[in-house]
Computed example of a mutant assay.
Amino acid sequence: MNRQDVIPSLVLSGYALGRIAAQDAGNDAPAAQWRVLNLLEQTGRKRVGELASAARTTQPGMTRLIGHLERDGLVRRSPLPEDSRAIAVDITDAGTAALAAWRSEFRDTLAPRFADVDDDDWSILTRAAEILAAHTTNDSTGAPR
């Protein structure tokens, strides 16, 4: 594989793994739900507009998603002290628990697909995961580096 093709291949493989895990686990929650909960867990409280931008969706679409997540007790909305007109969203303890359960479910669902991976390849995958994490960690504004 050419060097220029590696990153797109990793991204597409990641999407495929997520799709496969959701289908195999019978998890019908929208992928956007998990992305938003993960972002909130990683970066903390965000305005709806910031979440929409980070998720590459519209603000009305994000507002609807946040409404569903709030009804399920996974997030809470609260006014920002510095701007009483602005609303911020934060993950709840239930949201953190749901996210942890989702990660476990996906890990356990995908594990059989990787049962034949030897120790050398696990080391390579582990290093690749570390590199990807280092290059996708959000800065203090929530924008990807």
Results as ranks from 00 to 15, higher is better:
3 R>N: 11
3 R>Y: 15
4 Q>A: 12
5 D>M: 08
5 D>F: 07
6 V>K: 02
6 V>Q: 06
7 I>K: 09
7 I>P: 00
9 S>I: 11
10 L>R: 05
10 L>M: 13
10 L>Y: 06
10 L>W: 12
17 L>E: 02
18 G>W: 02
22 A>K: 04
23 Q>N: 11
23 Q>D: 12
24 D>Y: 15
25 A>C: 11
26 G>S: 15
29 A>C: 10
30 P>C: 15
31 A>D: 05
32 A>R: 14
32 A>F: 13
33 Q>R: 15
33 Q>I: 03
33 Q>D: 10
35 R>F: 14
36 V>F: 14
38 N>V: 11
39 L>E: 12
40 L>D: 01
43 T>L: 14
44 G>T: 04
44 G>L: 05
49 G>N: 06
52 A>I: 01
52 A>T: 00
53 S>Y: 09
59 Q>Y: 08
60 P>L: 12
60 P>D: 10
62 M>T: 12
63 T>K: 11
63 T>L: 09
63 T>W: 06
63 T>M: 08
64 R>N: 15
64 R>I: 15
66 I>K: 01
69 L>C: 03
71 R>M: 10
71 R>Q: 15
71 R>G: 07
72 D>L: 14
72 D>N: 12
74 L>A: 01
74 L>E: 00
75 V>F: 05
76 R>D: 09
76 R>N: 07
78 S>E: 10
78 S>W: 05
79 P>H: 06
79 P>F: 04
83 D>A: 13
85 R>P: 00
89 V>C: 02
89 V>N: 00
89 V>G: 00
92 T>F: 10
96 T>F: 10
97 A>F: 09
97 A>W: 03
98 A>W: 01
101 A>F: 09
102 W>T: 07
103 R>Q: 14
104 S>F: 14
104 S>V: 11
105 E>M: 15
105 E>G: 10
107 R>K: 14
107 R>W: 11
107 R>D: 14
110 L>S: 03
110 L>V: 05
110 L>Q: 00
111 A>I: 01
113 R>S: 03
113 R>E: 03
115 A>W: 04
117 V>Y: 05
118 D>N: 07
120 D>W: 05
122 W>K: 10
123 S>C: 13
124 I>G: 08
125 L>K: 03
126 T>C: 10
126 T>Y: 13
126 T>Q: 13
129 A>M: 09
130 E>P: 00
131 I>S: 04
132 L>D: 02
133 A>F: 12
133 A>V: 09
136 T>E: 08
139 D>C: 01
145 R>E: 09
